[in-house]
Design a protein around this nucleic acid. Structure first.
Lengths: 171, 171
DNA sequence: GGTATGATTGTTATAGTATAACATGTCAAG
DNA sequence: CTTGACATGTTATACTATAACAATCATACC
């Protein structure tokens, strides 16, 4: 259910810090309710499949492959053919509710939908958690680099692979 | 053949500007000779397949899929099974002689091998040319963003999709 | 030279990712 | 209650990538 954010939730107050312990159920529910509002606003439909796919992605901070999602959908009575998963994932990505992690050929829920953002991702190779990092400065630097060649950026992919704090300790 | 760079070549003097007209044969040959030197320096071998794959990539400023490369290899008498192409491509990437463009599931030759660089790529969706852009400031910004979560970056993917100057005019 | 050693290439087979094309079903507007 | 648009289901196939093993080649060493 939607929360008002009057209470402290590291996951919600600093959604970029997916690596930190936080009330995950809370931030998931929050993202979901924001997603519903956004979709309704645009006159689009968050149908059962789409909603369920978003929920599945929200249940983890990890990126899930399309076929992982598909398996869970199928187990719940939805279609079990690839297009079922890919269409829902594509819809969510187009609406900014999910992101594709190209390095992993996988998808992750957007933790702060609605806020315009060209996201940067931090992918921990230890625990497979994917965090969205503040990307505005990165994008700005990229724009500068592109501008020097007269290149106009339309979409960008910014992903970093490495180790999160916990996994650094473990190693 | 190797060139001395005493003559003007937009492609070599500003290798980031792949979009600009330039003596492509010149900058390709230059990259190839640098590649040979680098590999020899490390005590590794630029075998016929590896060398040919690098040449194939250098013939274009576009990214080629592994199977595109494979087809050309096969036509020239090399093996025609995927691992032949993937192994050569992996070798070239490990040695910094080629880069994987994740957005395209494809590979492109590195235009300035040897110079340490975590590259950023500008991918023109009009003409499919891929340019390497100066990425140091972008990486720095990404490091800052990651550092705020205590995340340590090991490898990164920075790719921008858009339109190069010529294709902007055409559109 | 001969041969042990490891690196490289070739090949078979299979796994994993993604989309085209079309049939069926659902929903809201008129 | 029908029409039209959107969404879902299904079949089939295309594209990308790797595991595992066999054969070959290069090098260093005896």
């Amino acid at each position: 259910m939607a929360h008002t954010h009057s209470d402290a939730c590291p996951g919600c107050e600093a959604p970029d810090l997916a690596f930190a312990a936080h009330d995950h159920a809370h931030c998931s529910a929050d993202a979901l309710s924001r997603a519903e509002a956004l979709v309704a606003e645009k006159g689009l439909r968050l149908t059962p499949v789409r909603r369920r796919v978003l929920e599945i992605l929200l249940e983890e901070h990890r990126a899930l492959g399309a076929y992982d999602v598909l398996t869970r959908l199928a187990a719940e009575g939805f279609g079990n053919q690839p297009p079922v998963a890919y269409r829902a994932l594509d819809f969510l990505e187009e609406q900014g509710l999910a992101h594709r992690i190209r390095r992993l050929n996988a998808f992750t829920a957007c933790m702060h939908p609605g806020e315009a953002h060209a996201p940067a991702f931090l992918i921990c190779r230890g625990c497979n958690v994917v965090a969205e990092a503040p990307a505005a400065p990165v994008m700005a630097a990229l724009q500068v680099a592109a501008g020097q060649s007269g290149f106009v950026i339309e979409r960008s992919t910014i992903e970093a692979l490495g180790l999160c704090p916990s996994c650094q300790v473990a190693a």
